[in-house]
């Protein structure tokens, strides 16, 4: 994907969260957004995922601009997948029904075809044994992996992952990160917001450091992590990369 975000402004209740943010990437598979909490990473991701519309500025992927009206944005959201930090799943439905819901009600598959579609991915990620459990019966890691799977089985053009491991215990982080690594190997495009710096460095094609509502540094992962000129970014990395 070629991402081009220009002069994005977003305000909530008078607070400026994005302050003229611009970011242009090369043709990357995995873009990772890092930076301090409250710096605007999640706000940026929500705009990229078509969940919010910026107050000013625009975004395009591969030269195609994101629409601004809700009906067209809904079509866009149907073509991508988004996973939040937590509480992605619908608690009244089993894991399997969570996967089937978008396939049947949004993408028009028959229930039988939808079941066929999810069978192989459930097995590949060792989730088949948990398919009939309600979210309350799943571990945090299992819930997040089902959520990623739900975004994936609709065959999206790309995924948006908003701190998918931040609400998890360390051991469960591992299983979710392993799943994201596998997605990278199979060629899925994604934008990931994360605080896992070691993981970000390993998986990112390009990294953007978002702080104070702007992109303070962006480029290939090695460049940002090893040779960044910005004192602000170096200071942040020295405190988070132990």
């Amino acid at each position: 994907m070629l991402l081009d975000a220009r002069d994005l402004v977003q305000r909530f209740d008078g607070t400026t969260v994005l302050d003229g943010l611009s970011l242009a990437t090369g043709d990357v598979q995995a873009l990772v957004l890092i930076g301090p909490s409250g710096g605007g990473k999640t706000t940026l991701l929500r705009i990229l995922a078509g969940l919010d519309v910026p107050a000013a500025g625009g975004v395009s992927f591969d030269g195609v601009p994101l629409p601004r009206d809700e009906a067209a944005l809904r079509d866009y959201r149907r073509s991508v997948g988004t996973v939040f930090q937590a509480y992605n799943l619908f608690p009244h439905l089993s894991a399997l029904d969570n996967l089937l819901l978008p396939l049947v009600h949004v993408h028009g598959l028959s229930p039988a075809a939808a079941r066929d579609r999810v069978r192989e991915p459930l097995e590949r990620f060792q989730l088949a044994a948990h398919a009939h459990k309600r979210p309350a019966e799943l571990s945090g890691g299992q819930k997040q992996r089902i959520a990623i799977l739900r975004a994936l089985v609709v065959r999206p053009r790309r995924l948006f992952l908003d701190e998918p491991t931040s609400a998890l215990d360390p051991e469960m982080r591992g299983e979710v990160l392993a799943m994201i690594r596998e997605l990278k190997e199979t060629g899925v495009e994604f934008v990931l917001v994360t605080h896992e710096m070691a993981f970000a460095r390993r998986i990112a094609d390009e990294v953007a450091f978002v702080g104070d509502g702007r992109v303070l540094a962006a480029g290939p992962a090695a460049e940002i992590f090893d040779h960044c000129q910005s004192p602000r970014v170096r200071d942040f990395l020295s405190r988070t990369l132990i």
């Binding site: 809904r74 009600h105 949004v106 609709v154």
Partner: peptide
């Protein structure tokens, strides 16, 4: 919780589907 509406929007449900299914 609000997150349920967010999840519903993220998978592309219409407002009416969100009410009915979620």
């Amino acid at each position: 919780p609000r997150t349920q509406r967010d999840s519903a929007r993220a998978i592309g449900l219409t407002p009416w589907q969100t009410l009915r299914l979620v």
